[in-house]
Design a protein around this nucleic acid. Sequence first.
DNA 1: TGGCGATTTGACTAAATTACCAAATAGGAG
DNA 2: CTCCTATTTGGTAATTTAGTCAAATCGCCA
Lengths: 109, 109
Amino acid sequence: MERLDSSTRARYEHRAKVFKALGHPTRLFIVEQLAKGELCVCELKKMIDADLSTISKHLSVLKNAGLVTDDKRGSNVYYHLRISPDGSLFACMDEAAAALASAFGGPDA
Amino acid sequence: MERLDSSTRARYEHRAKVFKALGHPTRLFIVEQLAKGELCVCELKKMIDADLSTISKHLSVLKNAGLVTDDKRGSNVYYHLRISPDGSLFACMDEAAAALASAFGGPDA
DNA sequence: TGGCGATTTGACTAAATTACCAAATAGGAG
DNA sequence: CTCCTATTTGGTAATTTAGTCAAATCGCCA
């Protein structure tokens, strides 16, 4: 029987950090937009109705989870994905939606 | 250009809920154990060093995210996964670990 | 019926998250 | 150099989450 001891826990904390970063609608949206190509903060601002500082902090969470990197060019900061848009993390998003929908009979159940 | 308006946002909130549920090491551990087969709360208790009520609440979060269901049999409550252990949500966990590791040069980078 | 083991729920506290505003910083243009 | 734009950071209030203990439930068995 596997037990959640401290060394096992460290491994799970590692993974949980990535899921946690994806656990916010705005961040999930950002990740999907970046899947189409890099965007600078001001471009994301046009898409998202929130304070610029809020968006900046969401980007920082994604960066700390290893999901994106930033690249300063001129006075702009461009963000792009570190994961493949064809990878399981994206397939996973659809499965996530399906899990909830099929459980509670949502619109796309 | 796609915008995160209120209806779009509702869709992302839906998905984010599932990721959020996976964004805790204990819950991630529980999900992986359940991938091997159903377990009752007292069996999970043997694996996890936390208060029984804490475990119960984690299970409730997973249930609300549509990831598990419960099944009372006798005086025990058995939990089992609602998602396939072969699906992308599991493949995704490895990718999650890899994303962080490759970003920060972790042990399994 | 009475009590027991298993599990959930409620009350509560501490800690983390989120959002906004204002201020700081950094680079480029004039 | 100085202003302007782009972005991040710090402070703070509101909300949510995680964890613990105690109390409430529920199904069984004597």
